[in-house]
């Protein structure tokens, strides 16, 4: 199904300008201005209460903004709720859009009818999603009996049934085990590869961002704290990779390796931790320089921890 332009220009699929939402005592979203182009895959991260879900609720027409502009698929989501709903798929990790006491396949059939899909087309789409998400065995089971991982896959299938241009996932992997997370991510990658669906994702799991998102938005106390690539985020806050080197015999501090800083020396210099910026040197170059000084027995590379990166952003802005 190709979506008709429906009055929307070929502009950004998500756009906010000076978007503000106040609650009784707090300002949840504070002059947020963001534009997301069709086809992008964006991770939207921040601490609890930073304003992520509030933003999503305004994007989907659930919540009235206090002031500012919000456009989803070029439409005002509050006034064009139904049109926006036809063109977006939304999953709130903690809320279900399925019918609790009906077999799963009936939820799909009902949703297909709600979205006015042609029966043949609906059947094909359901079959495809069920196949990709490996939900065949659960189709006849009532939704209330599904496990969390099964339910989450079903929720995402339900949100994608009508082939939306924009998929918004709010904490899709919350509470899932490693394997379920992995399957879900692979599915989302495939869906994006096939259909070019725009993805906006909030998560606390940095693995989601690393695997799925080409762009990261960091929100802090309702304000946009960062907008760029994941690597750029790490660069901005100076998050460095760390080379952990085990040496054959006790060695003095390796303080003169180019572009590195010694973080720690353990066991009389048997293990040393060297931090370096990936934009200045490479792990191989550091290793070569160390090898020239001492015999290396073992090594490990620690990647920047993104939660740490986010924390640094908060710290840099004088909080956290």
């Amino acid at each position: 199904m190709t979506s008709p332009p429906n009055g929307a220009a070929a502009g950004p699929i998500i756009e906010t300008v000076d978007l503000v939402r106040d609650f009784k005592r707090t300002r949840a979203v504070d002059h947020l201005s963001v534009a997301v182009a069709a086809g992008e895959s964006v991770g939207y991260i921040g601490a609890n209460g930073a304003g992520k879900s509030t933003t999503i609720k305004m994007l989907t027409g659930i919540l009235q903004p206090t002031s500012g502009l919000v456009r989803t698929c070029g439409l005002d989501p509050m006034r064009r709720r139904v049109d926006v709903a036809r063109r977006t798929g939304v999953v709130f990790g903690q809320r279900s859009q399925l019918w609790w006491d009906l077999p799963l396949h009936e939820s799909f059939t009902i949703l297909a009818a709600i979205h006015r899909l042609e029966p043949g087309q609906a059947r094909a789409r359901i079959e495809r999603l069920v196949d990709q998400l490996e939900m065949g065995p659960q189709l006849a089971a009532p939704v209330r009996s599904l496990s969390l991982g099964q339910r989450m896959r079903a929720e995402i299938a339900a949100a994608l049934l009508h082939e939306p241009e924009l998929l918004i996932l709010d904490e899709p992997t919350i509470g899932l085990d490693v394997l379920s997370k992995q399957r879900l991510r692979e599915f989302l990658l495939e869906e994006r590869r096939e259909r070019g669906t725009t993805l906006l994702l909030t998560t606390h799991d940095m693995g989601d961002i690393e695997r799925l998102c080409g762009r990261v938005l960091v929100i802090d106390e309702g304000r946009l704290a960062f907008d760029g690539t994941l690597a750029g985020l790490a660069r901005t806050v100076g998050a460095r990779r760390v080379l952990v080197i085990d040496l054959a015999e006790p060695t003095g501090e390796l303080s003169d390796i180019p572009h590195t800083a010694v973080l720690a020396v353990e066991g009389d210099g048997l293990r040393q931790r060297l931090a370096f910026d990936a934009s200045e040197t490479t792990a191989a170059a550091v290793l070569a320089a160390v090898s020239a000084r001492a015999q290396v027995r073992d090594l490990a590379i620690e990647e920047p921890d993104i939660e740490d990166v986010v924390r640094r952003i908060y710290a840099a802005s004088g909080r956290g």
Binding site: G61, D83, A85, R86, T88, V90, F92, R95, H115
Partner: peptide, 17 residues
Amino acid sequence: SGDIAVDFLRPLDPQLV
């Protein structure tokens, strides 16, 4: 519970549903 929000995500009037 706030689940009513999900009803507003559907292209149908909740009263009708």
